[in-house]
Amino acid sequence: MTLSECTLESLRTAARSDASLDLFSATDPGTIERVRHRLSPFLVADGGRRLVWGFAVVRALEGEPARSTYPILSLDGSDTDLLAAALRMEARTDRYTWRERAAVVTLANDRAIHLDNQTTALVASAGDVVSTVLRFLRLPSFLADAVDRERIDLRTAEFCAERDREALAILLEVSEPLSFSRRKRMLRWYCEYAAGNELDKKTERERARQIGVSPQPESAMRLLRYPVLSALDERVRLFTDRYCRGTGIRIEPPPSYEGDEVRVSFGFRTAREYAVRVDSLSRAREGIDDLLSVLF
């Protein structure tokens, strides 16, 4: 390993070499890349004929006033060693996008570079990088994009893979404002609903459009996936709206409607407040049978 200097043209030539390790070509040559060469040497191998790390920096230097020479670190070793060196230099363990991970695994596969655990740990500190990338590469491209942009996780994307592309595109769009976990849940609901009801592509699109134009797409999806549960919720809501609103009385069916006991709670500060609450409860008596019927 030797530290020396070379010209930008030499680096560009090395970057064009087929044997170079251009892993992160999708990386945007932004401000950080433009200043990086001031802080870090380029990594080269084979006497400077192969660029190992610094492609994005080379690209970022297009149109910049060139210095006469740039620092380079010349490396020896196997392609596995060079790949590990590039990943160390990149120093983004656990922060690579899915497409970047895929680039590492694809490059290793194309060049027959052995990816040992130490090297993959530089990409992601946990999990099996190779097997998850292979799963990622099997996804339809639009779902791979969604995973790469961190809209959904890999498992959810795989779960959705058999569904209609247009329908999923609508759902991905309308679920955009939701949190990651709620978006994931909404898509799973949709896939379970579509698979369980054996929807054809046309019906899938119709349903997705209906959900898409709903003022509350998440609730609309839940209603389709859990019609009975939603109906129970609605009955309880109607009861509380009718008998409890503004009374300070709280009605709670058991969690998931499991059990045979409904809880009623209220607070009071004065005898008059107590009397008002009890009076409200008495009026609620007429709806109690219907309320209890949600349990069985």
């Binding site: 379970e192 698979a195 369980g196 009801n197 129970l232 998931s256 409607y257 499991e258 349990l295 069985f296």
Partner: peptide
């Protein structure tokens, strides 16, 4: 839950019961 994928009951309404297991909604079971 992942093993339900592809079964005829994949889209059935299961909720978490008191013991943590997923079951049909109580009124449906009853």
């Amino acid at each position: 839950e992942p093993y339900l994928h592809g079964t005829s009951y994949e889209a059935h309404e299961f909720v978490r019961s008191r013991d943590g297991k997923m079951r049909y909604l109580q009124p449906l079971r009853a």
